[in-house]
């Protein structure tokens, strides 16, 4: 069985890079290969130009924050943090100083002599981070480290992680299946599925210009429509939506389109319009979500379409389910997807 198939990723120095994908997509396998816990059958892993593919984990300047934290239960917080430097043969005074500095960095000074089972999950998370950062690795790997925390703590740690990354200047490779986490923290994201990297880009590029149907669907909510390419001139394309008008769109770089294609429109990029609508349909359902309201529309062509509207103080609820509605959007919010 092949867990990774033709994966080629270049991660820049001092970057917060995220591997994003559903479980079983190969992101953890890739992480274990970088850490050295598994050996690749083919291909190479370069760290600053040096081939590390077959080095054992203890000879790589790469440290890991494990999903389960994996703190040593027979050592104190400070001993855990100093372990890496101790194994590197650093003098005792340096080990102690670095451990203290790391404790300060993650704001845990008072807990330095506690046992690891006497501190909370969020604190264990910080100790795991400090322990992995203490030896100043060239790359820090984070394997879904926030998944065991509750919502509020997770939000805090997202900001904390970003702060630690910019303060230490260490390259972070973060693995997650949570798209929101990925969008919040990353400089760049690689979206993975079934052992392949589907798209690499900044959070904005990935969200605004998803490469294909999987990426568009996995990150955020999206409406998919069928379309036919009428004419194309370089990146300028004219296409006709299956149940609507002809529109002109611009393709992202290195993309071409012909024949039948799928296009994506984000729900918040569309609006309900009484007239001048591009698409027409019937309102099926109104879902009130506090900040937003979702309007579920059945288009005349049969497809489902969702429009998201931000709620304002003065917005009144006039529409009723079953009413005929029109949907409008700007041509540049239409994204042509790769087949």
């Amino acid at each position: 069985m092949q867990a990774l198939d033709d994966v080629s990723v270049t991660i820049r120095e001092n970057e917060f890079f995220t591997l994003l994908g559903p479980s079983g997509c190969g992101k953890t396998t890739l992480l274990r290969l970088i850490a050295g816990f598994d050996q690749p059958t083919r291909g190479t892993i370069l760290l600053q130009g040096q081939d590390i593919s077959h080095l054992p984990p203890y000879q790589r300047s790469v440290n890991t924050v494990f999903q389960s934290y994996a703190l040593f239960p027979h050592m104190t917080v400070a001993e855990n943090i100093g372990f890496g430097l101790e194994m590197l043969g650093k003098p005792k005074s340096e080990v102690r100083e670095t451990a203290d500095r790391m404790l300060k960095l993650v704001r845990m000074e008072e807990l330095r002599d506690r046992r690891t089972d006497q501190i909370s999950g969020g604190q264990q998370q910080r100790v795991a981070l400090a322990r992995a950062l203490a030896p100043r690795p060239k790359v820090l790997l984070l394997d879904e480290p926030l998944s065991a925390l509750d919502y509020k703590l997770r939000k805090e740690m997202q900001i904390e992680l970003k702060r630690l990354q910019s303060e230490t200047g260490i390259t972070f490779i973060f693995v997650t299946h949570d798209q929101e986490e990925a969008l919040t923290m990353s400089d760049r994201i690689a979206v993975m599925h079934a052992g392949k990297v589907l798209q690499i880009g900044s959070p904005r590029e990935i969200y605004d210009h998803p490469a294909d149907r999987f990426v568009a669907d996995f990150i955020g909510d999206t409406n998919f429509l069928m379309a036919e390419v009428l004419a194309s001139d370089g990146r300028q394309v004219r296409l006709r939506l299956a149940s609507g008008p002809e529109i002109a769109v611009e393709l992202p770089e290195n993309r071409s389109a012909s024949g039948r294609v799928t296009v994506a429109i984000r729900p918040e990029h569309a609006r309900l319009a009484p007239d001048g609508a591009a698409l027409n349909g019937t309102l099926e359902n109104i879902v009130y979500l506090g900040t937003d309201t979702h309007y579920h529309v059945r288009l005349d062509g049969g497809e489902a379409f969702v429009v998201r509207n931000q709620n304002r103080r003065d917005s009144t609820e006039a529409l009723q389910a079953g009413a005929p509605v029109g949907i409008a959007f700007e041509p540049d919010s239409v994204q042509v997807l790769r087949d």
Binding site: F37, P57, Y58, Q59, F72, M87, A132, P135
Partner: peptide
């Protein structure tokens, strides 16, 4: 025993013997 602990030790530059001895 959680095998991740031994993996973590190796990740933190402990040779197999040090991992055995210390963890």
């Amino acid at each position: 025993m959680d095998l991740t602990l031994e993996t973590a030790a190796a990740d933190l530059y402990a040779t197999p013997w040090q991992t055995f001895r210390r963890v």
